[in-house]
Design a protein around this nucleic acid. Structure first.
Length: 265
DNA sequence: CGGCATGTTTCGCC
DNA sequence: AGGCGAAACATGCC
């Protein structure tokens, strides 16, 4: 799996073991941002949380925001809660460490990212002041893991784009990636190409319910690759697990999209 | 070897 | 203005 909101949630939960510990040094590959990371030296970690696909490490010296890009993986004290990344690598080369946080107690937390698309932001001012300038901190729509029907209705609002484009837009709905977007649309019987302004209120309500039930289920199952539209079905010739109809594979909203013409309308 | 990749931003065009 | 496609990013993998 690639880091969608679910993966960051898994890492965020695992990273709670960092709370209460003191940072010795933080080093960031300068090609990945992280300007000013040295100010976190000696800082006490007060909390770890997730916003959309961003991991936020909160310290008494400021915040460290981490966006994992497409192949970033968090390794905490030598072990990773997610060992294999779809489109990532099974290897873990020191050359691929883009951020290394050394703790005073000797522990090391790092981001190993072959493709170097992970990004880091240090926030030492009022975080609210940075929200509008650092995209990795938002603005975000309601989080998919707990979205309600009224939140989704408001988020889609008067937009006129394809439904999938809205689901992938983090300022509309936060946390969904390409794989989870296909999964929830498949489960909700909705065509990813449908213009959102043509959805009925009932369809929006239904979709919200599907999102809010499917994501926690996939989280428990292990992440964004654990849906019914598994990675192996993302190819021409695969059959819909529900009705056996040949799945469609095409580009929608600029992304590879898989759906079933048989039951998604 | 060529092409593809599950994230995001930017840019040009309609 | 808003939406869309394409390109760019960088590199491993099939």
């Amino acid at each position: 799996m690639v880091p969608e909101g679910l993966e960051v949630e898994i890492w965020s939960q695992a990273a709670q073991v960092l709370v209460g510990r003191q940072i010795a040094t933080v080093r960031v590959d300068p090609r990945c941002g992280g300007v000013g990371a040295e100010v976190l030296g000696g800082a006490l970690i007060e909390g770890v949380s997730r916003r959309a696909k961003t991991l936020i490490i909160d310290t008494d010296h400021g915040l460290l925001g981490v966006h994992f890009g497409m192949t970033g993986r968090l390794v905490i004290d030598g072990h990773s809660p997610i060992t294999s990344l779809e489109y990532g690598s099974a290897r873990d080369l020191a050359d691929w460490d883009r951020c290394i946080i050394e703790m005073v107690d000797g522990g090391i937390t790092r981001v190993n990212d072959p493709r170097r698309w992970s990004r880091y932001e240090i926030v030492v001012d009022d975080p609210a002041a940075v929200v509008c300038t650092a995209p990795m901190f938002g603005p975000f729509g309601p989080d998919a893991l707990s979205i309600t029907a009224s939140q989704l209705g408001d988020a889609l609002g008067q937009r006129r784009r394809a439904l999938k484009a809205c689901l992938l837009d983090q300022s509309c709905v936060a946390g969904l990636g390409n794989m989870c977007a296909d999964e929830v649309l498949w489960r909700a019987d909705l065509d990813p190409r449908r213009p959102v302004h043509l959805l009925s209120g009932d369809e929006i309500d239904h979709l919200a319910g599907v999102i809010a039930s499917t994501l926690p289920e996939m989280l428990r199952a292990g992440g964004s690759h654990m849906g019914q539209i598994s990675p192996g079905l993302r190819r021409v010739g695969a059959l819909c697990p529900r009705d056996g109809y040949p799945l469609d594979v095409a580009t929608v909203a600029g992304r590879t999209t898989v759906w079933c013409r048989g039951h998604q309308r």
